[in-house]
């Protein structure tokens, strides 16, 4: 296949060009016995309780510091499985491509997905590729589904936060949105910040080995930490208090947010997990996190204060006052994942 070539409508038409694309680009990169059969469905055996999830990726630009749409599409779905306590096993991948996309861009994305799948130890079991007319999509959109196995006896759900729970996060917040927003170039602000885009499954499996008593586990992606905490408060009917001075935020991200008037608490993360656990367990979790490369800057950022019929999240500000920390609302943010 010529590297300067572009995707044509017939690449998605199921005919010869489509077959060539699958044979020369998809199979060599995603190769595994289940996918290679190229049947209408992937067929496999799995034992135990399963977790099943779905996510779509429309990030602009396609490439940014620390990641790209392909990495996001793999890690995003891996993380959605991981935070349920599941070990991710298989992914499906659907591409929707705008006619005219350079094939070398598609190849770069596919190679990135291959590496991401290897790092997070999942297999791409099935896939699909469609091409739409020019201006009917923005370059490329990717949809991934994932299946994972929940091996331990854990019962993790957003509605399980309990009074006294401590709230732990594995590191700096706001990095992903900062990296993507500065890569867009709209703001003429350049930052050295890289996206935190990473697979959380390995670290989470280590945590689950030492602590079975995790009440809630969520990855604060779109809407950021503030929105995720509000969702948990509502599902569990609890009041949450977080401490502004304990939030891990890089100086560069603070500066970026100050200039643009946005709040890191509402900015998307792609390699962060928030855990609610009883006080005793929380210290153990913190130690496991801090020993792992993805959790070196882990911190206990707050606690559940009480059960409540009026669930809410409060933030203890740096100067010692207490105010509401609402869900993301009415704000305009570009496509970040």
């Amino acid at each position: 296949m010529k590297k300067e070539a572009r995707i044509l409508l017939s690449h998605g038409g199921g005919g010869k060009l489509a077959h060539q694309l699958i044979r020369e680009l998809i199979i060599p990169n995603f190769s595994n016995p289940i996918l290679n059969r190229l049947d209408d469905s992937a067929v496999f055996n799995l034992k135990g309780r399963l977790a099943f999830t779905c996510d779509s990726f429309v990030v602009k630009p396609l490439f940014f510091r620390g990641g790209d749409i392909g990495r996001l599409a793999v890690f995003g779905t891996v993380n959605d499985l991981a935070v349920m306590g599941a070990k991710p096993v298989y992914l499906s991948v659907g591409f929707i491509i705008e006619e005219g996309l350079e094939i070398k861009i598609l190849e770069k994305i596919i190679r990135s997905m291959k590496r991401a799948a290897e790092i997070s130890q999942v297999r791409i079991a099935c896939g699909d590729l469609k091409v739409v007319e020019k201006n009917s999509a923005d370059q490329i959109f990717i949809n991934t589904n994932g299946i994972g196995v929940i091996e331990s006896e854990v019962e993790i759900t957003s509605s399980n936060a309990k009074g006294e729970d401590k709230i732990i996060i594995n590191g700096f917040i706001g990095d992903h949105a900062t990296a993507v927003m500065s890569a867009r170039g709209d703001y003429k602000l350049k930052t050295p910040i890289r996206s935190d885009c990473a697979p959380l499954n390995e670290m989470i499996q280590k945590i689950l080995k030492v602590c079975k008593n995790i009440h809630v586990m969520r990855d604060p992606t779109r809407g950021g930490v503030a929105t995720t905490l509000n969702e948990i408060a509502i599902s569990s009917n609890v009041e949450i208090e977080i401490y502004e001075d304990r939030l891990p935020i890089r100086e560069e991200v603070k500066g970026f947010c100050e200039i643009l008037g946005v709040d890191p608490l509402y900015m998307a993360n792609e390699g962060k997990v928030i855990i609610f656990a009883p006080p005793k367990e929380s210290e153990k979790i913190l130690r496991v996190m801090q020993r792992h490369p993805l959790g070196r800057n882990a911190s206990i950022i707050g606690r559940v204060t009480k059960k409540s019929k009026h669930p809410k999240v409060l933030i203890r500000t740096r100067i010692g006052s207490l105010r509401i920390l609402d869900m993301l609302s009415g704000e305009q943010l570009p496509r970040i994942c």
Binding site: T317, R318, I319, G320, S321, L322, R323
Partner: peptide, 9 residues
């Protein structure tokens, strides 16, 4: 003023 919670102090 609102974000830092000054009013409440």
């Amino acid at each position: 003023i609102f974000k830092s919670g000054i009013r409440n102090l």
